[in-house]
Amino acid sequence: MPVDEPHRVHCHLDELLEARGMTLAALAEAVGVTVVNLSVLKNDRARAVRFSTLTAVCDVLDCQVGDLLSVSPPQA
């Protein structure tokens, strides 16, 4: 199956942060990633995510990768 561009992965960082009453800056501080990079992830502009970043974000937010990311169905 060919790789489609742009991707259809949607990041739910906004909802997770809101549910935990946490700011992006606080998450960046806890995870050790810049706010700019987390903002790229939050706004679905990331093209690749390190497993280490995913692990750290999920640890801090106490969630699974599936809670953080989902794939939208293809548009007809």
Partner: peptide, 8 residues
């Protein structure tokens, strides 16, 4: 390079 620029 494009992938690297979008790497988080």
């Amino acid at each position: 390079r494009e992938d690297l620029e979008g790497l988080v």
